[in-house]
Design a protein around this nucleic acid. Structure first.
Lengths: 108, 108
DNA sequence: AGATAATGCAACTATCTGATTGCGCAAATT
DNA sequence: AATTTGCGCAATCAGATAGTTGCATTATCT
């Protein structure tokens, strides 16, 4: 379990994505989170641990409860990858436009 | 290997993300793709298979070569999840704004 | 037609992953 | 002070995953 954690690997699991969406609207403690799912508390706890390890979640201790909330900045890593990807694709489309345009000209 | 494939799981692997970025700028055949990485042809071929299984890649046979290119639509699945996520977060911030605003009013 | 090149596919293996079980510790409740 | 509650941590296990090796298939080249 001491594997290097990565945001992309973290969101690969559907339960973890659900946890992230759940915590997006409010900070929650592990027990409360676990009640939202059909898995055990320990299973959810492990997911939380993984999400925390890669900085997607932050802890906040309140008495004996630990509230977890989203670290929005970290999600940007995924967002940026997608953006980079889309940027390259769009460049492609633009070049395609140029090709189509030059073909039109040739036909004249 | 007959597990259900999922876009999020597909992009969890760094090599697969690299393949996607590589193919974003141009369609390529497996051998050419493999030359860009330090892994074997078969390993890359497996990644391509996984990416194809979940519709991130499309095949195009040209003679004995098979060119793979990106299916842009599928990337949107990830993009949409991120968008949904950000939307919820922004709603939170807006609500926070409201709270701060009402606190200001109370102080008057 | 025979050799070579480009791939896919199947078997096998080491490692990783998600889930369960059991334990221990600190905070809150009685 | 004793009990309960909320939680993390370690061990364990079945299933998944990435990579290697070897072989079969089809297209191109000589």
């Amino acid at each position: 379990m001491e594997t290097r954690r990565d945001v992309f690997q973290a969101i690969a699991d559907p339960t973890r994505r659900a946890i992230l969406l759940l915590l997006a609207s409010q900070a929650m403690a592990p027990n409360a989170i676990a009640e939202e799912f059909h898995t055990s508390r320990q299973a959810v706890s492990k997911h939380i641990q993984i999400l925390t390890e890669c900085d997607l979640l932050k802890q906040e201790q309140r008495g004996r409860e630990i509230y977890y909330h989203i670290n929005g900045n970290k999600i940007q890593e995924v967002d940026q990858w997608i953006a980079q990807f889309k940027s390259i694709l769009e460049t492609q489309f633009n070049q395609l436009d140029k090709v189509l345009l030059s073909m039109k000209k040739q036909n004249k």
